[in-house]
Amino acid sequence: MSHGHDDPTLHPEVQMSTSRGYFLGFAISSVLMLVATFLVTSHSMPPFGLLMVISACAAIAIIAQIYFLLHIDTSEHNIWNAVALVLFMPLFLITIGLTWWMFSQLYLHTMIMPGMPAMVH
């Protein structure tokens, strides 16, 4: 219930947004998505290389979206969003990292992986 801020378009974070930025963010992520889809459906790369390339596409898309769509930067009004993102990072690391660890251990115990030495009976 803040008085005096009745027009939400006057907020600095709204003032910062431009249609050029939104369009650019949308275009970059769409192009990257199309590239990834094309690479996957055309089977034109070996699996590991494919994984690396689409991961890189995803990373660039995330950065583009964070910058152009969410306007997260270190300017005075938006530093809060950047801080929130940084505080959220450990959760990404924990969930993705521990998932990766537990599943790699699981596969070690349950799957016959290509290139794995034959199981000792």
Binding site: L91, I94, L98, L106, L108
Partner: peptide, 14 residues
């Protein structure tokens, strides 16, 4: 945030 695997210890992650 660090404990969720205890719901599936028997998955066999070792």
């Amino acid at each position: 945030w660090l404990v969720w695997l205890h719901h599936f210890f028997t998955m066999g992650a070792g």
